[in-house]
């Protein structure tokens, strides 16, 4: 079972970090990732952080999707020539 909710690093003690998921605090092992710091969001699987969430990519995916869908809507409405 994969937990899709990113966890926020709030404390680091060697290879173990404390993470916050919407107020629930857990310990997670950070030996599988590099360069983690307090405030980073990580994906946790079975007690281990397996990656940091790329915030820029997260926002860009949404923006790209919105602009493509909006363009399609304009095309459908016959307004594609009016940016």
């Amino acid at each position: 079972m994969c937990l899709a909710v990113p966890s926020k690093i709030i404390e680091i003690n060697d290879t173990v970090a404390r993470v916050d998921v919407d107020g629930v605090i857990r310990e997670t092992c950070i030996m599988l990732i590099d360069d983690v710091k307090i405030g980073d969001y990580v994906i946790v699987h079975a007690g281990f952080a397996i990656n940091k969430v790329d915030e820029e990519a997260a926002l860009k995916t949404l923006e790209d999707m919105r602009s493509i869908l909006a363009m399609e809507d304009r095309k459908a409405d016959g307004l594609s020539g009016h940016p």
């Binding site: 899709a4 909710v5 990113p6 998921v21 969001y41 969430v53 997260a58 949404l62 999707m65 399609e72």
Partner: peptide, 25 residues
């Protein structure tokens, strides 16, 4: 505090647009 990138990726308006597009193609 909101859950990071959960609300955004559950956005009902965006989901409706995606479904509309799926239906169209």
């Amino acid at each position: 505090m909101s859950l990071k990138y959960i609300d955004e990726y559950r956005d009902a308006g965006l989901a409706r647009q995606l479904v509309k597009k799926i239906q169209a193609v």
